[in-house]
Write a protein that binds this DNA or RNA. Structure first.
Lengths: 178, 178
DNA sequence: GATGAAACGTTATATAATCACACGGAAGAC
DNA sequence: GTCTTCCGTGTGATTATATAACGTTTCATC
């Protein structure tokens, strides 16, 4: 599921599926790629064409894309078209914090704060499927307390909120006028 | 993945894969079933044999089981053996809060606090795959603040911590003695 | 240039989830 | 009681998501 290769989900023109707030999208793609490039040079990582393309594809959305949607686009661009091509690139990008996996959707999204150390949290709109990234500090709250109490060592956290984004909430109230 | 039908994961005898703390397991299965029964009567829900069996299967573990592992056991017990049988029962149980889905694992676990209203959080051991349920209040922390700031309406949250449970942590330190 | 490690391309396969349709039994209407 | 309707079940088929395995290429290093 997640978001099919075009069709159905054209909402407001697809150019700016928005991460809730408006922003210069072209810039944010360019910046994302530049940040990734810098990051990879610093750490002697190979930012290969496939990896770069996958990140670029993801930066063009503020929604999560399934691996097979990504794969479709790779194919269009002349890259290998078998699942492992996409999955390997995604594995690399996720491992280095440039992309996050949205477990709830079995899908992937470009990191909004590359470079910064962070425990990301996501807000997923069930209506338009857009996803916004926020910070979380799960280890500070009830979960952290439970972990300390039982002796569980937290290495990684998944925090995903599902609900309705402000844009869709507006739309709904307007659509039921009478 | 998750936990195959026996093999490989026999760890400490499989009778008590533990939810970190020791407890009387038979009792906790019986209580879980009883609680579910009560709950279904109260709400006029049909606690059918398949649904009961699936819950019982899950209560016997403190790990998350994949839908197909559950299906295998249903087959052994003479129930239908096609995926929809398991998925429909799981859908019902999840909808009514008797079972939770662990998104990280694409697997399911019996609720540890049926009846109580709760936003569950999970601690998943990457070594033994056991899962413990805790409470969370994600809307109170950084995530909640971000949601309020942007106008996102949270309806449901997924909070899952991956790490190492105390039992496995002990085991590791002991295995590297010299 | 030779060498070893990491990426890639491809085939095949495993795992997870849903669709569509037929059947049967329980609950409410009469 | 009987009819009707709805819900749950059983089954076959299909769609989605993800990984295994293997040979080849590319790159960094010597």
């Amino acid at each position: 599921m997640t978001s099919e290769s075009s069709s159905s989900n054209d909402l407001e023109g697809a150019t700016t599926p928005v991460g809730f707030a408006h922003h210069d999208h072209d810039t944010c793609v360019a910046e994302g790629l530049a940040a990734a490039e810098t990051r990879c040079e610093e750490d002697s990582l190979r930012f290969t064409p496939v990896r770069r393309k996958v990140l670029e594809i993801l930066l063009q959305e503020h929604r999560a894309l399934g691996a097979y949607s990504i794969l479709d686009r790779l194919r269009e661009e002349g890259f290998g078209s078998q699942p492992p091509v996409a999955y390997r690139a995604l594995e690399f990008l996720v491992a280095h914090g440039l992309v996050h996996k949205i477990e709830r959707l079995n899908a992937f999204i470009a990191c909004a704060h590359p470079g910064e150390k962070h425990a990301p949290a996501f807000m997923i709109c069930r209506m338009c499927e857009c996803v916004a990234e926020a910070q979380s500090a799960p280890a500070r709250g009830a979960l952290g307390a439970a972990a300390r109490a039982t002796g569980f060592r937290i290495e990684r956290t998944v925090v995903e909120a599902e609900g309705v984004c402000p844009t869709c909430a507006d739309k709904v109230t307007k659509e039921v006028p009478a």
